[in-house]
Design a protein around this nucleic acid. Structure first.
Lengths: 255, 255
DNA sequence: CACTTTTCCTGACCCAGATCAAGATCCGCA
DNA sequence: TGCGGATCTTGATCTGGGTCAGGAAAAGTG
């Protein structure tokens, strides 16, 4: 998740044909919408300026729900905060991915979204999105698809967290990130982690120390090479084989 | 989840004003739709006959996705099946709850749905639902709300499975079931579990033996009384306090 | 009804991963 | 360029819950 991942055309300030020329359109809401309608979509999208700096919040837990957001460049984690104040990471988001869908039901964001690095986002007012998706069938379909994807992903995480051993969890995350990197046109075997070991541990339900040890172990076994935030995948097949246990998880894009 | 939970009007065979007179309409898709549109919704709903018997499948993992289902009476679990053949329970569904939303994205059901007891369902063709929800804003809104709810619920489960100790997990499930029972007009402190200890363990990421021990322990502490499938909640507040750690989980309806 | 099968409970033991502790390395900043 | 606080790594120890084993109670079944 290096800063090099620059999805949209960051130079365009206003909407215009923003979505039409955005390199992420095959991953994002525009998928399956024809040219004319794309501009209608673009008209309700606003490009938030300036980009979030590392550590800044896109929204906090409990904030009223006004809009969903798409990462244009950079990356974000979502976290729930317990009463005692300790965070639990519930997701990592890359360019083209939609954040905030879990807030529709209650009208408030149940979790916070925090930038893991310098991050640019598109903001889409939800009221407008709902209205427009009634008029553009392709948009409605894609919105539902993305939400369904989110559900399936979270189910897979539940299976992972509910039963799989530590090594398999980390392997699953790496395979998944690798996949999502490739989809975004980046080398699938050179991953720059924008999140800390602590974040990874929290996400996978493991202690930071365990994450460190696992990285060392996987490196020792020759599957990866780790240098701090930079992970080079040397044997993706072996990594996949580690994950292979739950069939349904294997062919998923997002874990 | 006794057979006593009879939500809809099981006597009506065809659609007609089915949704309009269904006692579950406040929990199900009809919420927020006016009278006239309700009948339009009912026209795409079919009441599957006969009801599923305990252990029968509503659909299998990998089945092509044609329709979503609403439980009318009884209960269902969803399970993913690993290559080795062992099941992992990903959800329990009560009357009024929608099953199959995780299949929209891929066009195939990623998990199977299995009746926990004698269970009646409404079947709603997805193509028709998508089309109709474009015409009835209230339906579109409720469909999105239900999916959002599902996402939020799964996030909470991830937090639960990722970090909370065994006792807290079980307490969370009990509180949640109690809540959902109340919503359906049943006593909140007399729960009849339709699922086995094994199912509960799988769902919570714990061994069957641990579930047994926890039931005994909670009973020993005077919080509940357990007799096989029947759980009587004696101190709901204490149970909630056990769960209280993650603030965001507390006020959820479904865990 | 007995007789099998399934489900559930409880105790004894063990292990994956948490926790505790101590360095090492990196990074932001003056 | 060097200082101070994160962040990361590695080792030693501990423990919650898994696994194994055996028996009891239900629930089917002929």
């Amino acid at each position: 998740m290096s800063e090099a991942i620059e999805g949209g055309c960051a130079h365009t300030e206003n909407a215009g044909l923003a979505c039409r020329v955005c390199s992420l359109h095959r991953l994002c809401l525009p998928l399956g919408i024809d040219k004319d309608d794309l501009d209608r979509l673009a008209s309700i999208v606003s490009r938030r300026r300036p980009p979030l700096k590392r550590g800044e919040y896109l929204f906090h837990a409990g904030d009223p729900f006004k809009a969903v957001y798409v990462i244009r460049a950079g990356s974000v984690k979502t976290v729930t905060v317990s009463r005692e104040g300790d965070e639990h990471v519930t997701g990592f988001y890359l360019p083209g991915e939609l954040i905030g869908l879990d807030a529709i039901a209650s009208g408030r964001h149940p979790c916070a979204a925090k930038a893991l690095e310098s991050t640019a986002v598109c903001e889409i007012g939800y009221a407008e999105l709902e209205t427009l998706s009634r008029k553009i069938p392709g948009l409605q379909r894609q919105l539902l698809r993305l939400m369904s994807c989110e559900i399936r992903h979270d189910r897979n995480m539940m299976v992972l967290l509910g039963g799989m051993p530590a090594e398999e969890r980390l392997a699953a995350l790496l395979v998944n990130l690798s996949d999502r990197f490739r989809q975004r046109g980046f080398p699938a075997n050179d991953i720059r982690l924008s999140m800390s070991r602590y974040d990874i541990g929290s996400y996978l339900g493991l202690a930071v120390e365990t994450i460190s040890r696992l990285f060392s172990r996987l490196q020792g076994e020759g599957l990866i090479t780790v240098q701090r935030k930079h992970v080079h995948i040397r044997d993706i097949d072996a990594l996949c084989r580690l994950v292979a246990a739950p069939l349904s998880v294997v062919d998923e894009r997002r874990i």
